[in-house]
Amino acid sequence: MTDPYSLTVNGTDHQVVDAWLGESLLYVLRERLGLPGSKAGCEQGECGSCSVIVDGSLECACLILAAAAVGCDITTVEGLQPGRGDFTTVQEAFIAEGAVQCGFCTPGLVVALTDLLARVPHPSDLEVREAISGNLCRCTGYGRILAAAQAAAKAASDE
């Protein structure tokens, strides 16, 4: 067991007690902090379903040792804040454009595209494809996800 430690997730400090040292941030988020929105799809950083933003940088929570993330500012899909209404522009676009099927990859893609649009407000199709090339989706073939990315970029610039 590790000594108790504290993680800052979505602006809130969470105590982690009685954890095994080898636990990933993904495991701690899901099983200890009650934040199962980040998904465990491969635990090798190959699917992107656990994408979170750590100190402003998009990373896979499965590849972060939880105990080493003390002092980091962690944002998960649960922490994305809608400007108004129930959904962020990216989330809204996913629903409207039919980008959701089984939905397992969806939280990771929503986080990845939120990160992209914060850095590149008007990405080209190729920029979107490269930005989400680490987020595997098996249902959609990405077509509606790419459409959602452009719709979200447009909605954000219209606001």
Binding site: C60, A112, E130, N135
Partner: peptide, 9 residues
């Protein structure tokens, strides 16, 4: 290298 997530880490 890998994906954007991997390149960030």
């Amino acid at each position: 290298v890998g994906s954007p997530q991997i390149r960030n880490a």
